[in-house]
């Protein structure tokens, strides 16, 4: 169990602490009166700086993450804060199929292609929470902002809905929410991680293809992997410095 128990213990226990503290009346289920908080009561954003690791070798394309994200964040239908892409590639250098039926929310169907597939893999996608982000740069009213813990978020109360950030994001991670008429995007489940819980997609992943970590924590597993292994980011040529790191990216992935 190793890693996953460690992850669960750490995040789960922290969840107990903060969850019990913040929303005890509604959600004591995260912690009971007897359990002592393991961490300071307050969540201090300056103590954290998050990173996200996606292992494409492990992803099985079940789409549970997409489904969990939809439920956790009430994402409008037809729009996605996270989605899973399937790449099917032939060795002739030409034939290539990429698909993501409804973002992969119901999983994928067996593939029937006209060509002989020599490699295939899934790539989960989401907001990269870039450090040098084009979307915050272009927001005319400063309604897109970066938090101290490194998240790129939208101020729904002041977003004017011009859609410039949607155009500026090279990853297609932003969309115009048809109900709020503002820009909308992945928050890395800020309401969960600030209670020391894992983002819904990470918790839903059955194979640990998605991992979430604190880059300021010297003992963090994600931080260790990013530091010691060969990780890639999407469209590195744009110099957006994403904080979503990928293991096993293919040249066909954009």
């Amino acid at each position: 169990m190793g890693l996953c128990r460690r992850d669960f213990l750490r995040w789960g226990l922290m969840g107990l602490a903060a969850g019990g503290m913040v929303t005890r009346s509604v959600y004591p289920i995260y912690g009971t009166e007897e359990e002592e908080p393991k961490r300071g009561l307050e969540y201090n954003p300056e103590d954290h700086y998050y990173g996200y690791l996606i292992d494409t070798y492990k992803c099985i394309g079940c789409g549970m993450c997409v489904q969990a994200c939809k439920m956790e964040n009430s994402v409008p239908e037809k729009f996605f804060r996270t989605w899973v892409e399937r790449y099917l590639i032939a060795d002739n250098g030409e034939d290539l199929v990429v698909d993501s039926p409804h973002g992969g929310i119901s999983g994928f169907q067996p593939e029937v292609t006209k060509f002989n597939i020599t490699k295939g893999f899934f790539v989960p996608k989401m907001c990269n929470h870039c450090q040098n982000t084009p979307c915050i740069q272009v927001c005319p009213v400063g309604a897109s902002y970066m938090t101290e813990d490194g998240l790129v978020l939208v101020d729904f109360k002041h977003c004017i809905g011009c859609g410039y950030c949607v155009q500026a994001c090279p990853y297609g991670s932003r969309f115009m929410n048809p109900y709020t008429h503002t820009a909308d995007k992945c928050t890395w489940c800020y309401h969960r991680i600030s209670r020391y819980m894992l983002p819904a997609c990470v918790q839903a992943c059955p194979v640990k293809a998605r991992r979430f970590g604190d880059l300021k924590d010297p003992n963090d597993e994600v931080r260790r992997i990013i530091a010691t292994e060969r990780v890639g980011v999407l469209q590195p040529d744009l110099l957006t410095k994403p904080k979503c790191f990928y293991l096993g990216l293919d040249k066909e992935v954009v």
């Binding site: 226990l13 995260y30 400063g142 902002y145 101020d155 109360k157 819980m197 918790q203």
Partner: peptide, 22 residues
């Protein structure tokens, strides 16, 4: 005050999913 308020608004969402300990 906008950004602190906006952050608080997102953080105040109640989680839908619990976790294992739940």
């Amino acid at each position: 005050t906008w950004v602190p308020e906006a952050k608080e608004m997102i953080r105040s969402h109640t989680p839908v999913f619990g976790n294992l300990h739940g």
